[in-house]
Structure formats: C-alpha cells, structure tokens
C-alpha cells in the first residue's frame, strides 16, 4: 500500500534536515502505529506524504499503491487514496462543513472519472456517519472547524475520512486532547473502516488509543528516522518506561 524508502526531507526556508532517511512499508489491511518523542518528525512525515508546501525531498521515495506520490499535487494524492487526519485541523470561516464535504467527495470522484454523488445519497451518508460519531446537525451546518472544541475537530476529521473512504489513512495524534468517550468514538470510527483494502498509519503518544485500535506493528521514530519496530508490546514498553531506554539502546 505505502512504501517509503530512505526518505530525506529538509525545510525549504532553512537549510535544516528533518527526516533523515525514513524507511517504512505498510501493507493493505494493516494498522501501523508510529510513536516517538516530540519533534522527532512524525508530523513532518505526514505532511510530506500529503504534499504540503515548504519541504524539500532531498533523497528517497514514497509510493502509494505503486505510484510515486511525491510529484503529485495534494489533491491528486487525495484522489489516489491518501488521507491525513490533521494534528491541528484548520478552521475555515465562511465555508459550511456540508459544502466542504460535498465539494471534497465530488472533487475526488471527478478526479477519478466517476460520477458525482447525488445530493440525496450524499445527505443520507453524511447523516448516518455523523450520527455514529455523535456529530449533530448544527456541527454539519457550521463553518468548517470554526468554534469546534478540540474533540469536535478530531471527530470531524474522522467524519471526512469516513465520507472520502481513502485507501491509506494517516492519523496524526488524533487522540491527543480527547477524553475517554471521545477517544472511543474515534476508535470506533476507525475500526468501522478497517478492511482488507485499506491501511492505517496511526501517530500517537499513548498506548490508550492502541487499546482500541489494535496495531499490527509499532514503530518508534526518533531524530527523523524509524529507529525500532516491534509488535503491540512495544507500545506498552513506551507507556511504562518512556522513550529513554529504547533510545539509549538504539542510538
């Protein structure tokens, strides 16, 4: 599904390398977790994969379903099946959440040469999916993320993911700032989407989320590279002992 090889990335503005050779392969149907100290480059990796400006790829490659994505525009990557649930979802005053969702769904369909979703189908789907995430009608009408609480913003990200039905889902600290109930909702939202044709890359600091979304593999990222990979027990080790031991061991 996703194949990242020796990815090295610097900031465009400063001559500072942030990703120092990331290697990571995620197969279809799998859930991988990435953990790591603040500033280790987790968000940078997710931004670079989704095509945000401001980064320069100096080496390596990233393929989604065999296609080189690094030369694609962000919207092309989305249409190809990539989705990033933002660590900090963006507020867009004046653009209604529904309008946003519909434009996104139909934008991707158009890019794939599919027909637009009918207004009725769209409404039906949004309502059902919003309901299971406890997103009320008012939140759907309001401008995108404006005045949403932290938890509402994160649930809104999951709603977008559910509507867009991407192949490769990257969740960047979707659990941070959520209380236990909200986290369960998010985890249920993710689990509902798990299937053979879809993969997840879950960036998190906490074992908590991984209790609900069982990962197949856990990676530890430090200083811009994946330094250790293991089973779910690796997350427990981090939860109990922090990163110090692991980092001391590998560095």
């Amino acid at each position: 599904m996703l194949e990242i090889k020796n990815l090295k990335v610097s900031l465009e503005e400063e001559d500072k390398q942030i990703l120092n050779g990331v290697d990571l392969t995620v197969n279809a149907g799998k859930v991988h977790a990435i953990m790591g100290p603040n500033g280790s480059g987790k968000s940078t990796l997710s931004y670079v994969l989704s095509g945000r400006d401001g980064y320069e790829v100096t080496d390596g490659s990233a393929h989604l379903l065999g296609e080189d994505i690094l030369d694609m525009e962000p919207e092309e990557r989305a249409a190809a099946g990539l989705f990033l649930a933002f660590q900090y979802p963006v507020e867009i005053p004046g653009v209604g959440n529904m309008t946003f969702l519909r434009t996104a769904v139909n934008g991707q369909r158009k890019a794939r040469g599919q027909e637009e979703m009918s207004a009725a189908d769209f409404l039906k789907q949004v309502r059902a999916k919003a309901k299971s995430l406890k997103i009320d009608a008012d939140m759907l009408k309001r401008p995108v993320n404006v005045g949403f609480s932290g938890g509402e913003k994160k649930r809104n990200e999951i709603l977008q993911m559910a509507m867009l039905e991407p192949k490769m889902c990257i969740l960047d600290e979707t659990d941070s700032g959520l209380d236990v109930d909200a986290m369960k909702l998010v985890a249920e939202g993710v689990n509902a989407l798990r299937d053979e044709g879809r993969a997840f890359l879950v960036i998190t600091h906490y074992q908590r989320l991984l209790d609900h979304i069982k990962p197949d593999l856990v990676h530890i990222m430090a200083d811009g590279r994946i330094v250790k990979t293991g089973g779910p027990e690796l997350a427990l080790e981090v939860e109990n002992n922090g990163y110090a031991d692991i980092l001391a061991e590998v560095m």
């Binding site: 989704s50 525009e73 962000p74 989305a78 990033l84 933002f86 934008g107 890019a111 867009l164």
Partner: peptide, 18 residues
C-alpha cells in the same frame, strides 16, 4: 486553508473559489 482543502481532494482553483 488551501492546503487543507487540497488534501481533501479539492483542487487549487476550486479551493480558492470557495
């Protein structure tokens, strides 16, 4: 905001219009 819209599959022109 443009990047956010792009990342959801909305192309630049349409995102700017929105």
């Amino acid at each position: 905001a443009i990047f956010y819209l792009n990342s959801r599959g909305i192309p630049k022109v349409e995102a700017t219009n929105l």
